[in-house]
């Protein structure tokens, strides 16, 4: 069982979550238990790996030779070196979609409007429109403008 996160990292991640929600025009999930679980997971990953890696993925472990299987996400220590699953993850920055349900609509649904139509988020939640399309998606705007 992993250790609970430090108070310092927990406070830092609550502060981050509040600020990013405001910046991106999203809301923290209305079920406090869900939001708290994710914030604590992010804080624990800050303590253990130095970065707030998404706690809603499975990351494999390295074998004795330092290798890991193809087709999965990277081990946490490797994910911490790149940005794909560091919160706010690439999916959030491009599509404003949070599969961890941290940054959602006021009703608690993840925004799926900007996702590719074949993305699993569309299959799960259907079309959830972005109530604040002028906010967020910083990476998506950069890619679109290129």
């Amino acid at each position: 069982m992993r250790e609970p996160p430090s108070d310092k990292s927990t406070r830092k991640m609550w502060n981050y979550a509040d600020k990013f929600a405001a910046k991106s025009g999203t809301h923290l999930h209305p079920d406090r238990a869900i939001t708290e679980a994710v914030v604590l997971g992010l804080a624990a990953n800050v303590d253990d790996y130095g970065r707030p890696i998404c706690p809603c993925n499975f990351y494999p472990e390295k074998d004795a030779d330092g290798n890991w299987p193809d087709g999965l996400y990277l081990p946490r220590e490797e994910e911490a070196k790149r940005r794909d699953w560091i919160c706010a993850c690439d999916e959030m920055q491009k599509f404003k979609y949070c599969h961890c349900l941290l940054f959602v609509t006021e009703e608690g649904l993840p925004i799926t409007e900007h996702l590719p139509e074949d993305h699993e988020g569309r299959e799960i939640y259907g079309l959830v429109e972005d109530p604040t399309p002028d906010k967020g998606r910083a990476l998506g705007r950069v890619l679109r403008d290129r």
């Binding site: 079920d31 869900i34 679980a37 992010l42 624990a44 809603c56 961890c100």
Partner: peptide, 12 residues
Amino acid sequence: DFWAPWCGPCRM
């Protein structure tokens, strides 16, 4: 059910 303690949607 594959889950983790700090996964929000797992709690749903």
